[in-house]
Amino acid sequence: MNESNAPATYQLPEQMSTVSGDIDWLYYFIYWTSVVLFVAIVGAMIYWAIKYRERPGHKPTPTGHNMPLEIAWTVAPIFILVFLFHKGFQGYMDLAVAPANSIEIRVNAKQWSWEFVYPNGGSSPELHVPEGKPVKLVLTSADVLHSFFVPALRVKRDVVPGMFTTVWFQTTHVGHDDIACAEYCGGRSTGANGELPYEPSDDPRNPYPAGQATGHWAMHGMMFSETEEDYAKFLKSIGDKCDQFATTGKPCPADIAAEQGQKIYSNKGCLACHTTTGVPGVGPSWKGIWGKEEATNVGKVKIDENYIRESILDPQAKIVTGFGPVMPTFRGQISDQELNEVIAYIESLK
């Protein structure tokens, strides 16, 4: 489907991801359950209110007790609720756990724009993904809370400063949809001196022309699900850093961020204590640690973006078993960008 925003049904937008079908099924299940309950309650209310209306000669019957009935309508909903909880949680876990082979795209949100950084190092305000491939987004914010929302994908995740959150999805066909910010993040429609009267545009891809609209509502972006070739073309168009390697004659690294991360590893002196060979030094080796469970003084932890971030900014928070609390904090000496690169590097040391 090429026309975006054509609703799939009256209530829900187009389905573009592998999870949409399940979620919509559940939505409509709740919808019809609700319709039945609503009609039953309100129907009974109106019917009785008319049938037993006050009129001469009509007397109310004193209220009796009906224990079985009362127990029944206290207990019966539990079955529906358990079912909803179960299906909802299942769907939520599908949304939470990204497949291992996902393409990783980093998302930087700030007031009031999105930036998508691709594995080849290029960045763009648009999100392009290859059709039918799992994609994992790692989101972070430079300022306040935002929330990444693509209606057709049925995904939404808050973007929190000082923390990584992730979202993953797999599109089912070629098409596009709007990206919206769903967590209020302020904004204004006039410039600092009151200039720039704000005019929305009728161009669906650019409804809030750049430079004018600066606010929560205007964190609009486009998500394109496209064929492999189109995706490859897009990657080239945003300045594939591989070109630089082509001139030096070296092979293009799979992941530019990891390449940068390796530089930080040596420049910032991590290599004094950490090896990448599997042999522990003063600190644990980084080889193969990504995604592992590890024992620390506060129990088992999983090594992921947030854990590594914390290890670097606040090393004493969790001490890996078998090592001393000697790692210095790098808070204030390492940028969010560099953190991303170190993480990419550690991730690449499979």
Partner: peptide, 13 residues
């Protein structure tokens, strides 16, 4: 109920 059901809430919240 829609909002308490996790996967549906993700879309609606």
């Amino acid at each position: 109920l829609f909002l308490g059901t996790l996967s549906v809430d993700v879309h609606l919240t």
